[in-house]
Nucleic acid binder design. Structure first.
Lengths: 341, 341
DNA sequence: GGTGTCTTTCAAAGCGCTTTGGGTGAGGGG
DNA sequence: CCCCTCACCCAAAGCGCTTTGAAAGACACC
């Protein structure tokens, strides 16, 4: 069923039917009702491709997910972020197209998106230090919102980000208040912008309280159970082991806990652990009482606000570039306690 | 830059330019080179919407991801599956559109996809017992491939699935060979088709070897660390505790291990564990020597083959419906050992 | 009855591409 | 020299929709 068939069926012109369905005022209420009823009955939905060709709007948002060529790994937060964004799109009648792209082909993908006119806007994931994608996208004139920030971008841009610096500073402060002196940081890969900010927050808090960040108590690697375990095991087995550990993700924290228990220690007693928690649906941090003390910030919520911001940009291109800093909340669980005397 | 501009720039007709770019034989090799060079230089890519309107092919595949309305949870395997599928699409020049859809709105989404002509085919995720989506899609006449199977579908359909029954039977056999008698199953939610098959395989293997599957040693819940821990803790703390546990996912297995160690036991000695491992990128099971004995089957690879099957279906609609059963490999790690005397 | 103002409807153009159905000129055979 | 066949290129239709510009009808007012 297409517009022509529907209109001849109704004995009306395509114009009238189209206007009736799209809510234009030039059509009598009675006819509108007749039209919508018929459309419903025959399950008529306008052909997306024809419609976007005519309107110039794709009603589609592109997500470009970087796939590391080195590790072939997909950051598990994307799934939740996209779930959040998807809700916003569904509500606004937008579709989402996903492009898994190796690091080195990113630029081309954005250009193609712009030239093929297949999306009205883009969400940029996983920004890195000195990411050149931002300036490129700004030049393309395609609205976009970044999940995260790039510290040294030349042009202004729209973004949604967690206040990583403050979150990790607060977590460190909390541990220091508990009397901990040797605090370790098990961070994500520090070519990611968010990881850098976390370290900055961590170091700032320590020095502000008169402590010196110790190199042997700072690790940076992929955020997996294995790597978390390895880093923690090395630190706990080395000289001057930490009494507290800050971790960048719940998955690493699982490994850290394993390393602690392997040494016959108890998390929350001999060694305290605070983790950042992206609140992923399949990795709940405790049910009632949270197990891990954590800086919580829902990635899903971030996805939702990023999507809404992008849609706003698309509908009002002249408005100033929106930015949104999400604060993580520090929830206390059973993984922290006073420093052993 | 659009086709008209490009063609006047070259002093050729749109027809010739289009043909040159699309590899038709009616154009001299010299002109083709001239055309492609100009297209490259100006970064010309045909407008997707116009092209698909003209050809009738969307060059897009739809993935409908069910979002449980109850738990609001997104199965983490989707990310890896989609990464695999994405590779296949990128290679074939297809786009992927994602629709996160609450359970109860699935039907509508498929209908819309079909009517709006926005996709050429669909991949169906997370099939359940008695899933009605299959018959519906078959009626719509849109090519589709199911990730998983539906035991009681009325019509034939294309699918890719792991041989869950055999995988779990082999795992159980392996444990029985090691002398285990009280073997537990910590399964996923059993309204999912794959979970049911796993239980069938488990029970079949036990009875074939003269053992009786015990209700108190079979649990079924979401596959999270927390739930895995809870189920294992209950079993190990109850009467007639298991000496071996079969688990449906690596994430649950982490919880199971935690429960074991909490009781002062050692995984692989007092209690053996075998898990199914979907080989997710961010959850590697050991680096060199695998930690967990596991039935391994890469979800990413499944995504890739599913995507290829779908593209084949689209290009040759008359060919018989393809199906592909992937065998899981049983890799031995440190989490299993002979039954304690 | 003529004029003007709304309201309601329509015909047709246009979005950017592919594809059908020629057309033109060069080369070869009779 | 004429005709036929290729090789190469082009004009125009059509994909299904939105939107512009205009026409037709209804109504009121003078």
């Amino acid at each position: 069923m297409n517009l022509r068939e529907l209109s001849t069926l109704l004995g009306l012109s395509q114009t009238t039917v189209s206007r009736a369905l799209n809510g234009y005022p030039e059509v009598k209420e009675a006819t509108r009702l007749r039209v919508t009823a018929a459309a419903d009955k025959h399950g008529y939905h306008p052909n997306t491709r024809a419609r976007s060709l005519a309107t110039g709007r794709a009603m589609t948002i592109g997500h470009v997910i970087p796939v590391s060529t080195k590790h072939e790994m997909l950051n598990p937060v994307f799934a939740d972020f996209i779930a959040g964004a998807g809700e916003a799109y569904a509500e606004a009648g937008y579709d989402m197209i996903l492009s898994l792209t190796p690091d080195d082909q990113q630029a081309g993908v954005y250009r193609k998106f712009a030239q093929k006119k297949s999306v009205d806007g883009i969400i940029l994931h996983g920004p890195r230090m000195g990411d050149k994608r931002i300036d490129m996208l700004a030049d393309l004139g395609l609205p976009f919102v970044v999940h995260g920030r790039v510290s040294d971008a030349a042009k202004p841009y729209a973004w949604v980000d967690v206040n990583n610096r403050r979150a990790f500073a607060r977590a460190a402060d909390f541990l220091i208040d508990l009397g901990h002196q040797r605090i370790a940081l098990i961070n994500g890969l520090e070519d990611m912008d968010f990881a850098l900010r976390r370290r900055e927050g961590f170091e700032t808090a320590l020095t502000a309280r008169g402590l010196t960040p110790l190199p042997h108590l700072m690790a940076s690697s992929e955020m997996t159970e294995i790597k978390g375990h390895a880093a923690a095991a090395a630190m706990l087995g080395g000289p001057n082991p930490p009494t507290a550990i800050l971790t960048s993700s719940l998955i690493s924290a699982l490994g850290v806990r394993r390393a602690i228990e392997e040494r016959g220690l108890t998390m929350g007693r001999e060694v305290s652990v605070i983790t950042h928690d992206d609140v992923l649906g399949y990795l709940p941090n405790g049910a009632d009482v949270p197990i891990y003390t954590a800086t919580k910030s829902s990635v899903r919520a971030a996805g939702q606000t990023a999507a809404k911001m992008l849609l706003d940009q698309i509908n009002a291109p002249q408005s100033p570039l929106p930015t949104k800093l999400l604060e993580a909340e520090l929830t206390v669980g059973q993984s922290t306690g006073p420093a052993p005397k």
